[in-house]
Design a protein around this nucleic acid. Structure first.
Lengths: 188, 188
DNA sequence: TACGATAGAGAACGATCGTTCTCAACGCAA
DNA sequence: TTGCGTTGAGAACGATCGTTCTCTATCGTA
């Protein structure tokens, strides 16, 4: 049983690497098997279909994302600093050599028309993150309208950094967020 | 010869509809043939490979995008209004029933790892649009740093509207852009 | 040692894909 | 009319995919 969860973890992490690097549809189940060192039989015992594996990978990505956001927020004292620390997290991520965009956005673009489960998982992630931003915006004493604006900046920074291969999108978005927070603060 | 350009147009438009609705990899060349009413032989005479067809579709999308942006800018008097009219264009687009994201971002997520030509075409489009924004920001008398910030807002509004199915992302991004322009104006 | 369940390796299956080829129908110059 | 080049319809090809099945080796238990 514990070796089942071991195999499960190895599978999800291997699939995550391959899917993110090459795209979901470009990776066959046999490549996942080779990367994870888990037999096809076991793969299909743990995940009834490739779609289920994709959803599991997205859930795994969500945990990684949440952990990274939480870690960078931990060093910040105020809600405003926690909010802005998201952009520092993005900055470090954009500089990783194999970064090429938000996995959720990429998968959404690839499969949104075909897989309901995938679409829903992506939506859940983005909704949850919007709530996270909204909470911090409220705690920072800024008006509620600022929250979706900052969330849009975070979203846009990711696609801009990926397509233009420009990690500076993080700093640019952060500067914009500061302007938005300051303008809201002085208006309130 | 003119019927070649006719077939070419029908092909690109048909492929555009199918690719955008279902994703590029989910659409076979035979489906394109059926939708366009052009024989496979002629398709491969006009486009040596599917990749070439995809690039042609992206170029066609770019022309549509530029035309739409230009049309909404035409009604605006000042550079600032032209800039903000982009968000009105987005607003109308997001409300179209079959809208589901920026085709460039979607295709990038789907094929960036596999097709060099596609990646490059997406990059060209985004670069060209960033220049368009930068020109308007300069003409509006705002500092240059505001240009990438507004471009990031436009990018983020598109993915947010697609994933969250919320056309209000256009209005939210527009409000943020106004704040950024105003803050820059008062600082200058 | 013998036996039954289990699991891995990988062949097999049916479907689909991008691309090419075949063949018959057609249009047009001589 | 004859012959030739071109075209379209669709079969064919080779590759790959997700998924399942077969076969064999292994291992715990009696």
């Amino acid at each position: 049983m514990t070796q089942d969860t071991d195999a499960r973890e190895r599978l999800v992490e291997a699939a995550d690497r391959l899917f993110y690097a090459r795209g979901v549809q470009a990776v066959g189940m046999d490549a996942v098997r080779a990367e994870a060192g888990v037999s096809l039989k076991k793969i299909y015992a743990l995940f009834p279909s490739k779609d289920d594996l994709i959803v599991a990978v997205l859930r795994h990505r969500r945990e990684q994302w949440n952990a990274g956001i939480a870690a960078s927020a931990e060093k910040a004292a105020t809600a405003r600093e926690k909010l802005l620390s998201v952009f520092d997290f993005l900055d470090a991520w954009f500089r990783e050599p194999d970064f090429h965009g938000c996995a959720f956005i990429n998968v959404f673009g690839e499969l949104s028309a075909g897989s309901e489960g995938v679409t829903q998982t992506v939506r859940e992630q983005k909704e949850a993150f919007q709530l996270y931003v909204a909470d911090l915006v409220r705690d920072a004493g800024a008006p509620a309208e600022v929250a979706p604006q900052i969330a849009i900046l975070i979203e846009g920074a990711q696609t801009t950094a990926a397509i233009a291969r420009s990690p500076e999108a993080a700093a640019q978005a952060k500067a914009a967020a500061i302007t938005l927070l300051d303008a809201a603060g002085s208006a309130a």
